[in-house]
Amino acid sequence: MRHDHVITSKHLSRGDIETVLDRAAEIAADPSAVADRHAGALLGLLFFEPSTRTKMSFETAMKRLGGDVVDMGSVESSSVKKGETLADTVRVIEGYADALVLRHPREGAATMASEFVDVPLLNAGDGAGQHPTQTLLDLYTIRENAGLDDLTIGIMGDLKYGRTVHSLAYALSNFDTRQHFVSPESLRLPREVVYDLHQQQGGRTGIREHESLEAVLSDLDVLYVTRIQRERFPDESEYRKVAGEYRIDAETLEDAADDLTVMHPLPRVDEIAPEVDDTDHAAYFEQAHNGVPVRMALLDLLLSEGGGGRDE
């Protein structure tokens, strides 16, 4: 890895991604080999928004590397409540820990925080922005199930506000992929992201937008489903109508390829019916479990390097 912060998947090259995924595969194959590798190291957890999976998997990853965590706790019980700026908070906590994990409701929070600290900082989600460690575990899961080159992927649901979607789309454009984005009109991919995928990724990736899954389902190697949130709609009936059209069940999957992999960043509400869980398509629990070896790999690479080139 060339970087000592992990802020956005836009800054991850194919080489960076492969380094992390290869290391994660090594760790997954033999976790005991790294059990004491970072004994004594501390990871600072700064979660300004609730999180279950991301926070617990970072904590598990650090402890499985022999290290430990220090946790800011909830915003209500911290000095943030007294009006402290994020810039001050991260400068204080970097004195306690060897690396920091930040989740914050504002977009750009991790970019700004990284300008104030010298220890590695990992973005665990900034508003509707980026969530690059989720992306790395998604890529790991895709690589294990379908491979990352010559991939046709459908990404469906809330593409406008879903930060996992934006991060994943950028990262996938390092590979030979065809990306189909399926969403209601009101939740299409932000124009900024489309702009980047077209302009900055040099046209290596093919992207298309659809309002219905039907037209593309049978072509897909991977279907990545995200939750459509109630609060994005003016009223309950509109929400129910739209959400129902983007729901996956056994019947939907009858038209899919036999080896289609269905993923979801979780938590799900009802966008994937429980009956799908028992099919060979379902990879979302495996995906959640992959968060541990992938975050172990990232932490191992960042903590072993002891700094390096800044993430510019």
Binding site: A87, R106, E107, G108, T111, M112, A128
Partner: peptide, 27 residues
């Protein structure tokens, strides 16, 4: 929702594109 629009001690920073500007914090 941009961090630069809050009370943080940072100046806004925009990349100049051919046909506009882009916030370097929130994109």
């Amino acid at each position: 929702g941009c961090i630069s629009a809050g009370d943080e001690p940072v100046d806004s920073r925009f990349e100049v594109l051919d046909d506009g500007v882009r916030c370097e914090y929130c994109d």
